[in-house]
Design a protein around this nucleic acid. Structure first.
Lengths: 133, 133
DNA sequence: CTTTACCTTCCCCTTACTAGAGAGTTTAAA
DNA sequence: TTTAAACTCTCTAGTAAGGGGAAGGTAAAG
């Protein structure tokens, strides 16, 4: 299967699929005459797997780990679960941080009258360096 | 004031402060003999301002806009408020997305026994491409 | 046989810095 | 006064994860 069909099947762009080859993550057979890549069903499955994991916010490095577990017949689910729990924890930290950020900004916006007068609590807050934490 | 004191005052690293000079955001006087940067009080204020805005998740580009508003005596708070409201909206989109992501991962993790057996619902789910939305 | 739609590699661009090399400068101690 | 530490400078290269586009080869359809 050529690269654009492979990309479509996996819900990725051609650029991304080619990138996954160059970094050694999903490397299809490559015709030595033409240089064209030829994706097998197994390659497609791997691309789909990586695509899913990426959409779950796993980094390329983590995708590599997951992929090797995925390909390992003798794997245990222990490692995968640990990786996933860690990822959940990361996401929750990020959620906390973003929520706080939004609340701060909402507070500032509510205090800003938003008309043409030159005084502005938002800029003042940035400047004063005494933001509500 | 030398660069390391400037950085400390603004709660930034020396590298970052130097970077802000090279990209033309906060450019101090530079001694033509030694090449050493010399930060004025005004420069420090700008660094602090940018530091705050960055901590509020404003991009460098947005910081430039805010900075020009900050420096413009005739600015209106309208623009600043609009920028902030947009940023709040961006953050809320991101919150929604991350929450959904966490819920999906939590669901998968709960289905995974996480022991030494080789079967793993998480990997199966990534592979099957039929994830719960 | 030609046109169009692919494919390839190659290099630069992005964001917002960070790390480190190699060389010059300032400051404080001996 | 010398010397050594602690600064400073520029420059290059790297990060994550690809995107954009050029120059050139190839495949499939008419």
């Amino acid at each position: 299967m050529n690269i654009s069909k492979a990309a479509t099947q996996a819900g990725l762009t051609v650029k991304t699929v080619r990138y996954y080859d160059t970094i050694g993550m999903v490397c299809p057979y490559q015709n030595p005459q033409t240089g064209y890549r030829d994706y097998s069903e197994r390659d497609i499955a791997k691309l789909q797997f990586v695509g899913s994991a990426r959409r779950f916010n796993f980094s390329i490095k983590e995708c590599r780990e997951l992929l090797s577990l995925y390909e390992d017949e003798n794997r245990s689910s222990e490692t995968v679960k640990a990786l996933t729990m860690q990822k959940i924890s990361d996401i929750e930290d990020r959620l906390t941080e973003l929520t706080r950020l939004r609340d701060k900004l909402a507070y500032l916006a509510s205090a800003c009258h938003g008309d043409n007068r030159p005084d502005c609590p938002i800029l003042d807050a940035f400047s004063a360096n005494n933001l509500p934490s």
